[in-house]
């Protein structure tokens, strides 16, 4: 089935010579890019994907282990350069720009140029919005900085979301859920101390599930959590026993018993919404920051970022919002 385009289409269009009478400057429309080339390009593309992820991870590792924060542009320039190389490969080989009529490349270049102008001039305005020139300093009152704080009805949306959540964890059902969760966590630590790694892992996994934001916020816990959890741990103990780990099963059974005997009212007296919130936030960040330095507590980091309800201005355009400086 070999196809010879030259035989089938003697007239390949040419700008200077629309009828192909002279056959000069003739280009090949039907280029066939072979499997070897395509596979090589795919391999290189996947390699670059690994590279760009590794690059970002390496930066975090440097930050975590050596405490050295690379300048912000290293990350951006690195990732964008790799993305550019990848996109050039895709366009040149997969999309066959390399073999194509150059006008298609020109069209694409014009498009990127226009995009560049768009970003450049929009940035020119947005990033110099707050600038005041010295020679006018006496006449001009500084206005907005181009930086706003997300608010709804005067309360920053992020603050509102946090307050709603704190109200949620103060409700009796969630309170019970979290007290039980902490008891499970304590039992897990206990098991670890007493040399029962299997039981500790099972209890920790259970505590993780219970501390997940889905379990707390999405599937709002119902009352009776204490008994249900104790029953589940008992089932886990039975399973472990039938698997042949009698010591582990005993630990679990003891944990179930202690949770069942937990005095909720007593534990609730020392329950602190703020501490619980901090614990959950730390857990969420630990669980989700797959490449982030673990933030100690949400409250601390909030204090660090200078965020609080008092910082919002009436117009919603906070002049005290975190500075954009690099």
């Amino acid at each position: 089935m070999s196809h010879s385009p030259a035989a089938n289409s003697p007239e390949v269009f040419d700008e200077v010579d629309p009828h192909g009478q002279h056959h000069y400057g003739q280009h090949e429309s039907h280029v066939i890019v072979g499997p070897f080339m395509l596979r090589s390009v795919l391999a290189v593309l996947l390699l670059f994907t690994v590279l760009t992820v590794g690059f970002a991870q390496a930066e975090i590792a440097i930050q975590n282990w050596f405490g050295y924060e690379l300048p912000w542009w290293v990350n951006v320039v690195g990732a964008m350069s790799i993305a550019t190389i990848k996109s050039i490969l895709v366009m040149a080989i997969f999309m066959q720009l390399r073999y194509d009529n150059p006008i298609n490349t020109v069209a694409m270049l014009f498009c990127f140029f226009a995009l560049g102008l768009f970003l450049l001039f929009t940035g020119l305005d947005l990033f110099t919005r707050g600038t005041i020139y010295d020679f006018k300093a006496g006449q001009v009152v500084k206005g907005g900085t181009g930086q706003g704080v997300a608010t709804a009805n005067g309360v920053p949306i992020a603050d509102a979301a946090r307050d709603r959540f704190k109200q949620l964890i103060a409700t009796p059902e969630v309170k019970e859920h979290l007290i039980v969760t902490n008891a499970v966590r304590a039992a897990a630590e206990d098991a670890a101390v007493h040399g029962q790694p299997a039981a500790a892992a099972a209890l920790n996994a259970m505590a993780d599930r219970m501390m997940d934001l889905h379990a707390v916020k999405v599937h709002t816990p119902e009352a009776g959590q204490q008994n249900r959890t104790a029953a589940e741990i008992s089932r886990m103990a039975d399973a472990m026993r039938s698997a042949g780990n009698a010591a582990g099963a005993d630990t679990l059974a003891a944990a179930a018993k202690s949770i069942k005997g937990l005095n909720l009212a007593e534990a609730g007296a020392s329950y602190s919404v703020e501490a619980e919130f901090a614990r959950l936030a730390a857990f969420a960040h630990g669980g989700e920051h797959h490449h982030a330095p673990i933030v100690s507590t949400a409250n601390e980091s909030r204090a660090r970022s200078g965020l609080s309800g008092a910082l919002t201005t009436e117009s919603g355009r906070g002049t005290h919002a975190p500075a954009a400086g690099h």
């Binding site: 704080v149 997300a150 920053p156 949306i157 709603r164 704190k166 970022s305």
Partner: peptide, 16 residues
């Protein structure tokens, strides 16, 4: 935006 409801935001512009 206005639908944001994540309790652990550290920065006010996270909805954006």
């Amino acid at each position: 935006g206005a639908l944001f409801d994540y309790p652990f935001a550290e920065h006010a512009q996270l909805p954006l």
